[in-house]
């Protein structure tokens, strides 16, 4: 995989949200929230990178910063040789044809006052991709491609089910023929039976259109099904990264291991050793010193070094990276 030139390269991405001011006019600003704190990623063309973590770990901020829906504070994002963060507004609008996003909430991501046709028409008009009757043909084609009857074109979002709305969201993202898609929790809000339909659709589309995915999710099982490579985030940093197979079979970071063991398995006979983490995720405004995971870490070798010295993300196996001082030692 390393031989293929990456389509998307992210280097040292940083995004700190300024802290709120308190309720008083002269109060000092609270500490900034370090949502993303130095994240680097590479995604090869046609592949899927799964970005996993719990709420507040910064995974969505990474996705939106890559597309510049949020302006990152530092770092470099390169899409197929183009420096995304250096683009001026005009160039950026052109670049948006190449990178798109599918959102989690199929209720919030469609304008409630626009029909499906109007929603799909908009990108075609913005980028002058079609005109006249060609527009309607393209819309019908898009709807068919995502498995919807073209008769849905004149429906309003509230007339559609969650799964149908999510298909419309996917069709909208595809309308500009992008090569790179950020999938921001695309199936988390859907029922199990519909979730499987949408996951299958996404993998079909990937094959047919040679798409590259950044698949953001909190659900390790969903990512396992879809991703070639997986990165695990905790408090704004990547703590482990590697080929999906290896990472799921032999996680090297204790956080990945606990995350994996916490996923409920639909099999009552499964006798798994559960690692139940103690405590809550610390606030990203006030991360612990040293290894950010040390207050909850179940690793038997945890010691003073973890409390003071932040572990770097380093190679711990073929193509596998982990940010733990004791990644090589058994849990």
């Amino acid at each position: 995989m390393t031989t293929v030139a990456p389509l998307v390269e992210v280097d040292g991405l940083v995004k700190h949200f300024p802290g709120d001011r308190g309720p008083w006019p002269l109060a000092r600003r609270r500490r900034p929230v370090r949502a993303v704190d130095g994240v680097s990623l590479r995604i090869a063309a046609g592949r899927t990178l799964g970005l996993v973590g719990e709420s507040g770990c910064g995974k969505s901020t990474v996705g939106r910063s890559i597309l510049r829906l949020i302006e990152p504070d530092a770092g470099r994002v390169v899409l197929d040789g183009v420096d995304v963060l250096a683009c001026r507004p005009r160039e950026l609008r052109g670049l948006r044809r190449r990178m798109q996003i599918v959102f989690q909430d199929p209720y919030g991501s469609l304008n409630p006052r626009m029909t499906v046709r109007q929603a799909l028409r908009e990108p075609l008009v913005i980028h002058h991709l079609a005109r006249g009757s060609e527009i309607d043909r393209r819309i019908a084609g898009l709807l068919e491609e995502v498995g919807l009857d073209p008769a849905f074109a004149d429906s309003y979002p509230h007339e559609l089910s969650g799964g149908q709305r999510q298909r419309v969201g996917i069709a909208r993202a595809l309308s500009v023929e992008p090569s790179f898609l950020v999938l921001d929790e695309p199936v988390s809000a859907l029922d199990v039976s519909v979730q499987a339909q949408v996951l299958n659709l996404l993998s079909e589309l990937q094959q047919r259109r040679k798409l590259t995915y950044l698949f953001i999710a909190h659900d390790l099982a969903v990512v396992r099904h879809s991703a070639d490579e997986v990165a695990v985030m905790y408090l704004g940093k990547i703590v482990e990264q590697g080929p999906a197979e290896t990472l799921y079979r032999a996680p090297r970071h204790p956080y990945t291991a606990s995350l994996l063991s916490a996923v409920p398995v639909p099999d009552p006979r499964a006798s798994r050793q559960r690692i139940v983490l103690q405590g809550d995720v610390p606030s990203p405004a006030n991360p612990p010193p040293g290894c950010p995971f040390h207050p909850r870490c179940p690793h038997p070798r945890k010691n003073d070094r973890c409390r003071t010295e932040p572990p770097p993300l380093r190679a711990v196996g073929p193509d596998q990276l982990a940010a733990c001082h004791f990644a090589e030692e058994p849990m």
Partner: peptide, 23 residues
């Protein structure tokens, strides 16, 4: 239809079984 974390690697990356239609 549930994507599972405990299946063997060879079973992953295929199509998931789906229930057609909507609730």
């Amino acid at each position: 239809a549930v994507p599972r974390i405990d299946t063997r690697v060879s079973q992953v990356r295929g199509r998931l079984h789906t229930i057609p239609g909507q609730v």
